[in-house]
């Protein structure tokens, strides 16, 4: 794995590193899925993680967010060692991921999907004695987030009834609700059909907005799409990792 600036040489004033991994490795019963991954995610930058199918992009995401425990290596987030921190804790620290398959709560309404994400920072997670009406104070913020991604007209629909592309967009809205410091998006555009072309078209503006609001974003894609001024990591299938320039 290597790091290659997309456009020209890196500027002399590099922003500070917020997330870094050194010698990351994961074995699955003898099969080495990820080997010797070193990466640095910098403040207020969009990075992309690319590679062919099966190269281990999603595994790297799983390792970084601690959904999988690394077999070897070390992960640091904002100067703090998170190599053995549980995944929910990592999310609370501000390193938030999305999933390759759209991860939503299908039998909750679109609005509730976002409100669930807003509940924890508000300290409304464990309150089993209060009515659901106590969540109404989260509604304005939730509606604002739905508007950011263009889902405001579907707030009362069941999330499971949304089209595939809209589910992905909803997932992004719930992820943003956490005010993440670093956002890891696993193939956010994968599988979007014609009906979602518009969503994709508007999304580049959306990504910019996201990039501004959070510290850093990392996007994993199966196809290298150049994002100007962004940084690109590539994962190669062969080991030792080959250097690929996008």
């Amino acid at each position: 794995m290597t790091e290659a600036p997309v456009s020209g040489a890196a500027s002399d004033a590099e922003p500070r590193v917020v997330l870094s991994a050194r010698g990351l490795r994961r074995d699955f019963a003898g099969f080495v899925a990820v080997k010797d991954v070193d990466l640095d995610v910098r403040h207020a930058k969009i990075h992309a993680l690319i590679g062919p199918n099966g190269a281990g992009k999603t595994t790297v995401f799983n390792l970084l967010t601690k959904f999988l425990a690394p077999s070897a290596g070390r992960i640091e987030f904002m100067g703090r060692d998170i190599t053995s921190t549980p995944p929910a804790r990592v999310a609370r620290l501000g390193l938030v991921r999305s999933f390759q398959i759209s991860a939503i709560f299908p039998h909750l309404s679109v609005l509730d999907n976002v409100r669930v994400a807003l509940q924890r920072p508000g300290g409304l997670g464990y309150q089993f004695w209060r009515s659901r009406g106590s969540l109404d104070l989260l509604t304005p913020r939730a509606e604002q987030l739905l508007e950011t991604v263009g889902l405001q007209n579907e707030r009362n629909r069941m999330a499971g009834d949304l089209s595939y592309g809209r589910k992905r967009v909803l997932e992004i809205a719930t992820t943003l609700a956490l005010d993440p410091k670093v956002l890891l998006l696993d193939e956010p555009m994968a599988g979007m059909g014609h009906e979602d072309v518009e969503t994709v078209a508007t999304s580049s503006a959306m990504w910019r907005r996201i990039a501004q609001s959070s510290w850093s974003s990392t996007i994993s894609r199966s196809l290298p799409i150049s994002v100007t001024g962004s940084r690109c990591f590539s994962v190669a299938k062969s080991s030792p990792p080959a250097i690929t320039r996008p």
Binding site: T65, F67, P87, A88, A91, V96, R97, S98, F99, A103, I104, F105, P106, H107, L108, D112, R115, V116, Q119, L124, G125, Y126, Q127, F128, W129, R130, S131, R132, S134, L135, T174
Partner: peptide
């Protein structure tokens, strides 16, 4: 309750609730 909402979201998608 707010707690019940989280229970339902765990039922619906546990990994997402963790994330």
């Amino acid at each position: 309750s707010p707690f019940g909402m989280i229970l339902k979201s765990i039922r619906e998608n546990e990994n997402r609730a963790i994330s």
